[in-house]
Amino acid sequence: MSGTTTPPGETPAPGLPSVEEAFLLLRRAGLRLPPIPRELVAGFTRTGEATWQSGDIPPGDLDAVLAAGPATPPALGFGHLGHGTNSWHFVYHLVTPSLSLFLRIPYGGTESSDPASLAAVNAALIRTEELVVAADAQAAAGRTLVVDDALGQSWWRRAGSDRVEESENPLAAALAA
């Protein structure tokens, strides 16, 4: 970790330089760097104005996360996406052998540019760190699936179960299980 980064206007190289850039830009916006599993650092790269990914699933692609099967390689993506005045969200997804997680949280719109919106994003990212560890512990049972989607439904499914559980806060519910 150098403490320096690529010149402004350039896209940093994949891997740690891109992680560093993401960390700095997010921190300046008041956001935590989302957890990045170490095996996904090498392929980590900036893909848009404020989006990053490692693996084949672009940020915000819920369908691709839901379609992930046992053979789907690990994938990570996050960033700020949206359109118009209020349709803006912080998105995060992670697909590992033990976890498929999709977050789409209001952030950066006319109704979501307040400290409470930042707090909600940061709280979700902190919980995600713990969920990754918890899901790994259940890996033998299969993959935990968690969807917290401001544009659709919020639900989760424990590893090895077919039962979908709706929740106002599926991250917290999955962690508490």
């Binding site: 970790m1 150098s2 403490g3 320096t4 980064t5 690529t6 010149p7 402004p8 992680v19 560093e20 960390f23 700095l24 921190r27 935590r32 760097l33 957890p35 990045i36 599993p37 170490r38 650092v41 990212l125 760190e129 713990e130 990754v132 560890v133 790994d136």
Partner: peptide, 23 residues
């Protein structure tokens, strides 16, 4: 467990900790 599994905000904060100098 978190540290072993993931690169996190805390780790980056500890290692960078200041605004970088642009090359």
């Amino acid at each position: 467990a978190v540290q072993a599994r993931m690169l996190t905000f805390e780790e980056l904060t500890a290692k960078i900790g200041h605004t970088p100098h642009w090359n």
